[in-house]
């Protein structure tokens, strides 16, 4: 078991722990930071899974998308932009 596999296993266990915390949390606003932790861990494990130079682009795309989703959920939950 070399260094890559240890880092990969650590990323997976962190992701599973954060997902369990998201499911067990009662308040909706407190779920969102743990969703961000899941997104960090999954981005890291995507890069560690495939040794390819294009992997960082795919991981960045997933990271941007997941952050956008979290922000959209938080913004709608807080009442949306007060523009009108």
């Amino acid at each position: 078991m070399n260094g890559y596999e240890i880092a990969l296993a650590l990323c997976g266990i962190i992701a599973l722990y954060a997902a369990v915390r998201v499911v067990l949390e009662k308040d909706t606003m407190r779920k969102l930071p743990f969703l961000n932790v899941v997104s960090f861990a999954i981005s890291g494990s995507i890069v560690l899974l495939i040794p390819h130079p294009l992997a960082i682009v795919a991981a960045a795309a997933y990271f941007v998308g997941s952050t956008l989703e979290s922000n959209a959920i938080a913004s709608t939950y807080a009442g949306g932009p007060k523009d009108e």
Partner: peptide, 22 residues
């Protein structure tokens, strides 16, 4: 909102399977 957050966990779990196939 809880349903949408849990849907995000499903997407996060599927992504490594897509990465594993290359």
């Amino acid at each position: 909102f809880d349903k949408l957050i849990s849907l995000g966990i499903i997407v996060a779990g599927i992504m490594p399977f897509l990465a594993d196939r290359g």
